[in-house]
Write a protein that binds this DNA or RNA. Structure first.
Ligand code: NAD
Ligand code: NAD
Lengths: 216, 216
DNA sequence: CATTTCTTGTGAAAAAAGTAACAAATGGGC
DNA sequence: GCCCATTTGTTACTTTTTTCACAAGAAATG
């Protein structure tokens, strides 16, 4: 029951939604709820029951007909699918305003992601501590990331340095980058890049606002 | 030349891409480039020429065949489409680690968006200044937002307060919210909500990393 | 154990988004 | 003014994603 099936290609958006399902499930778990139906859980999510079920069905059958989904079991299954059933160490580059805010953010642990090390090229910042992380001088970046075998980086440096630093990161073994700088990174295409772009997000909001179409 | 046409429905993603086009065009403008073809500009973007042209074609014909697009003129056109051809005042609620980082962020002005006022319920924060903005006590929020006719808010309060505060915001006239708290807001559906969710973004990155599929 | 009530998992249909291809402009050279 | 090299705008096509609808499985009831 519940073997992985690869006959269908998995929608990119379905993966992103898995994270949201996981968060909702953990919330239900904290509320001591043992079982949930696709109908109930999607009340808290921005989607419909059919999509929840379909998304899960790409990976197997995790529910019980007539009953619903076991919350704890589904949490474990989704963590296994996402790969967040183990702790991943992350590096942060650029301990400025945004970078230090992220260093103090507990929310990454929700997905078993832990900022393990942070770098900045401002010598006066080296040695300072934010949220248990001591800032290291940028000169040690390549060595440390390579040694610690870190694969994921948060990039919070000014836009003009982002491309160069991301190339350095790739050189020392980084495979995935969450980029906060407002530039497109051009990297080998086995490097996974996601872009958090608040300003352009606001841009679309203004459009929707102006055109008064109802949201979603 | 270039009349708006509404016969087609406009893909949601096309709007988001407009913001990216705008940013690229402004960069070209700073480099004193006067004219650009869809081929050239998409070298800097994560897309192909056909999509650039198609996206623009939803709103009109802004280029010149055999030549390309006038950079300055296209900037003005896109700003007009997005509605960022005028300054929009924004309110920020929750001047904590992330909120104060945003207060010091210059990147919103790229889209003519200006954080005009900020609120926090921690009395000890009221009066402190970040990036030219003085933090106001939360008790003045409704009055000030209503008086200043602010329509857009950045929500950076802890997750458990986000729903309640967003309802207050709607009450005093806010129409669009950029939500940073890891919860889904349930609001009337003429209220536009966008969600910046770094943790879940990282979740999908881990999946892609584990499954080694080439990015994009 | 037959019946009823739920709720999943999944093909099939529908909708949406993205890509390709090309006719129609444009401008420059000669 | 005519040809040639460009590059747009748009229609037609392809792929991807979402939604629907329902058969099949599971428990509860009497
Ligand atoms: N502040 C925000 O809220 C915000 C919001 C969205 C996006 N961003 C983006 O995030 C990035 C950082 O923004 P910020 O506001 O934190 O800026 P910041 O200037 O406060 O921080 C940048 C940090 O990067 C460091 N740095 C500069 N060059 C470096 C290098 N070569 N190697 C290592 N470290 C280097 C600086 O010393 C500084 O500490 C920018 O690209 C910005 O556009 C910021
Ligand atoms: N820090 C980050 O980098 C980060 C990253 C992603 C998401 N977030 C999310 O952003 C939100 C804020 O995170 P943070 O790290 O800045 O937390 P924080 O605790 O540093 O800041 C929260 C601020 O909100 C204020 N606040 C609390 N209740 C309030 C209320 N009812 N009205 C007005 N203000 C109120 C607090 O006084 C505090 O200043 C959280 O929901 C968090 O999950 C933060």
């Amino acid at each position: 029951m519940g073997r992985k099936k690869n006959k269908d290609i998995i929608p990119h958006e379905a993966i992103r939604r898995l994270s949201l399902y996981l968060r909702a499930l953990k919330w239900l778990s904290r509320k001591k709820i043992k079982v949930v139906s696709s109908d109930e859980i999607t009340k808290y999510l921005n989607t419909i029951p059919a999509q929840f079920r379909k998304d899960l069905s790409y990976f197997g059958g995790f529910g019980k007909r007539g009953v619903g989904y076991n919350v704890e079991a589904l949490i474990r299954e989704i963590e296994k699918i996402l790969g967040t059933n183990m702790v991943w160490d992350i590096a942060l580059i650029g301990a400025g305003k945004l970078g230090t805010a992220l260093l103090g953010y507990a929310g990454f642990m929700e997905f078993n992601l832990k900022i393990a090390i942070a770098f900045d090229n401002d010598r006066s910042k080296a040695g300072r501590v934010f949220g248990n992380i001591r800032i290291e001088p940028i000169s040690r970046m390549k060595k440390e990331i390579r040694e610690k075998k870190i694969k994921i980086a948060l990039l919070t440096v000014p836009a003009q340095y982002a491309q160069k630093i991301s190339e350095d990161l790739v050189q020392c073994g980084i495979k995935a980058i969450l980029n906060f700088a407002p530039v497109n990174l051009h990297l080998a295409n086995d490097i996974h890049v996601a872009h958090v772009d608040m300003a352009s997000e606001l841009g679309s909001l203004v459009y929707r606002l102006k055109h008064k179409s109802s949201h979603k």
